[in-house]
Design a protein around this nucleic acid. Structure first.
Lengths: 147, 147
DNA sequence: GCGATTCGTAACTATTATTGTTACATGAAA
DNA sequence: TTTCATGTAACAATAATAGTTACGAATCGC
């Protein structure tokens, strides 16, 4: 299956925004992400509703942050994206009648739940400021293009 | 997208097999799993190659275990299935040229890797015997159908 | 006000992974 | 030798994501 790359993509977009002063248009970001402006708007819509970014129309419009990078965790963003499904593997039936299947689903489900909790904790503990700092360290070693 | 339910499905099948003495045919299992016999064969093929189950043709044929349930971990089965992709979320580009994207991918990738390690450890520590025992406890409380 | 710019959104297409189905060959037991 | 059962290829169905087109609505500069 195609994997869901919205989290990755939107973080990529936000980091580009973080490197600039002025708002960036959907077209700007689409160029960075090598995708379409509509896809950008669609993805960013959730973040706007969550109060993470703001958008402006017309001349000089575009996307900018609604609050400091240090106040935005990866979990905030994950949630703003509509909490995409984490795992590709999952149960065959959500509400099985078969007792055997129920038992299997429970065991697998608990394992997945624990792994997901680890992931969410990690997301909660990482802010966009962390991510930006991480990037700047990496960029020091390799002053290449940023497109 | 559709989620990959092969692990869940095959465990369901194996638990039904564990509850019986005689081999079960693909048709038997397909009935249990509410699916098609070909799908069963396809899924079980990996387990046969991994030496977890054996199959016999003709009269009295079908599927049976190749070794004790206590010697088969969920990780063995996961691996036998061809190590299906665990996460639905993932990077937009596998080998990005953009340094910003590389940085984002690395941070996200590490978080996913850690979560996956937790999951695999859990799978490694659970055997089919554990699963069967778990089921029998649950079945005591609810003596319903097992199909 | 007018026109250029930019977001907002619906509708449709393209891509791709999983699952289901059909068909037929192969092998084993009664 | 007939019947039962797996082995496998080929194709259809399903479903989720991502890309595209089209048009409406809001904002800015003139």
């Amino acid at each position: 299956m195609k994997r869901n790359s919205r989290l990755s993509a939107v973080l990529h977009a936000l980091m580009h925004m973080a490197e600039r002063e002025a708002p960036m248009t959907s077209d700007d970001l689409a160029l960075c992400l090598d995708t379409n402006a509509v896809v950008v708007r669609r993805t960013m819509a959730g973040l706007r509703e969550a109060g993470i970014v703001q958008s402006g129309r017309g001349h000089g419009g575009g996307w900018h942050f609604a609050r400091p990078l240090a106040d935005i965790s990866l979990l905030d963003i994950y949630n703003a994206l509509g909490e995409p499904i984490v795992f590709q593997i999952g149960p065959a039936t959500e509400m099985p009648g078969c007792v055997v299947e129920q038992s299997v689903n429970r065991v697998i489900g608990e394992a997945l739940k624990d792994a997901e909790a680890i992931l969410m904790a990690r997301f909660a503990g990482t802010t966009l400021a962390d991510l930006a700092a991480d990037f700047r360290v990496a960029a020091k070693h390799c002053r290449a293009d940023t497109g």
